[in-house]
Amino acid sequence: MIANTSHKSKYDMEALHHPYPYQEELPTQQTMDAMWRLFLAIGEFWEIDADIEAMSSNLVVFMSNRIQVNPTYVAEYANAEEVIDELISELGEAEAYKKLFTDPSANISPPTTKLARARQLVSNEFVALQLALGGFKTFGGAKNYLGYISGANIEGDTPYRTYTKEPK
């Protein structure tokens, strides 16, 4: 038995996993500022006990990596900015972010509204990033977390919490 496969055109091949070449178009400074305020708001809302100010360059790198993997993220960040602006003008700052973070309708997948896109493709991703950059320590004092670069397995300086009693 021989496979009778018609061959793939070169346009079908191995595209999904190859990031596009770096896009010239980046979010505007105004959008970047809005995204940074969103990132800070996440920390405030959940009372994250970490040096969030020190994470600003990580956020910039993260956003450009997201755009590199999928250029539509430029539009997602602009959408999130627009949604947040609108919510703030309607509800005031605290309630606006609360709605973005907690409104159950914004978490229905796949996202079909602008609010849902802002929540799922931007805010939720920033949540994952902030935890992975050290925010996780707020919740119960763990030393390591999935996505956190905790360091190598060095004797006497294990990069995660260990079982200390001498096992039998």
Partner: peptide, 18 residues
């Protein structure tokens, strides 16, 4: 099969985020 890029930081961050 084909080939996927390894040790790529943007792919890693995509995994962390999504």
């Amino acid at each position: 099969g084909g080939k996927v890029k390894m040790k790529d930081f943007s792919i890693y961050q995509n995994y962390v985020a999504t």
